[in-house]
């Protein structure tokens, strides 16, 4: 399928290590533009590292990452991070209100967030506008993740990276986030790359899937591949159902 789509993000022989331990090994593959790709795989497979590389929070030891055909290492890091936004694992919140947190991306550009824009940022992710003045420490897990996504979306990224945002949520909150991802993708054509632990969720929401195993790309293809994996390794992982 890879030849048939236009890649938003492409990895070419990417290696990444920490203190001599190889976290990613010769990773090559593409994420289709305007579609939802899920990344699944056991803990420690290098999934979060992949996302941080896309956002430029870290750089590969070797190999290339291309965003719309341009190598990330040649792009201005600030522009790259606004173009390829990431909602980090655990949705870190700064002290202050929800509004204060939503305003961060604009404050970093020397701008202010208009109250109307803040309200629509919240309603876009399915949260009531009344939540704006709420202390960020008082948010529930699901609300926190949604505020984190809304904050990332303030930069209007072309690619949205979501790092395990549903793993600690109850089923109802998970369903809300799934709907939100679908809506964002349908309405704005945003390319979404997200990590999930849940295989059913990956099939349900994802158009395309990357399966990561031990720092390598084990399989990529239409999300349905998870129903019939080609390799024994991925079959066993999917059969386990969980990481």
């Amino acid at each position: 399928m890879e030849d048939r789509f236009e890649p938003a993000v492409r990895f070419e022989n990417v290696n990444y290590s920490i203190d001599g331990d190889l976290i990613l090994k010769e990773v090559t593959g593409s994420f289709p533009k305007g579609r939802i790709t899920t990344i699944v795989g056991p803990s420690g497979a290098g999934k979060s590292t992949l996302l941080k590389l896309c956002n430029g929070l870290i750089s590969p030891d070797s190999g290339k990452i291309l965003i719309d055909g341009r190598q990330t290492e040649e792009m201005d890091p600030v522009r790259l991070r606004r173009k390829v936004g990431i909602a980090l694992q655990d949705a870190p919140m700064m002290d202050g209100s929800v509004f204060d947190n939503l305003e961060i991306p604009l404050v970093l550009q020397g701008k202010r967030l208009e109250p109307e824009a803040a309200q629509s940022a919240l309603t876009d992710v399915g949260l009531p506008a009344g939540l704006l003045s709420r202390d960020s420490r008082e948010l529930s897990g699901g609300q926190r993740q949604k505020v984190s996504i809304a904050r990332t979306l303030i930069n209007r990224p072309e690619v949205l990276l979501l790092d395990e945002i549903t793993s600690s949520l109850d089923p109802a909150s998970q369903a809300e986030i799934e709907l939100l991802i679908k809506t964002l993708n349908d309405r704005h054509g945003t390319t979404v790359i997200w990590i999930t632990h849940n295989i059913d969720q990956a099939v349900r929401i994802g158009d395309y899937t990357w399966v990561m195993m031990d720092g390598k790309v084990a399989e990529t293809g239409e999300a349905l591949l998870l129903h019939e994996p080609a390799t024994l390794q991925v079959r066993e992982f999917v059969k386990g159902g969980q990481v």
């Binding site: 929070l57 991070r81 606004r82 936004g85 990431i86 980090l88 961060i104 930069n155």
Partner: peptide, 20 residues
């Protein structure tokens, strides 16, 4: 560290990220 990385990930400069 998470907060510093948050600022960077949202397009902040090192100075903005480390300021607090």
């Amino acid at each position: 560290r998470g907060e510093v990385e948050l600022f960077l990930s949202l397009g902040g400069t090192p100075k903005q990220a480390i300021h607090p």
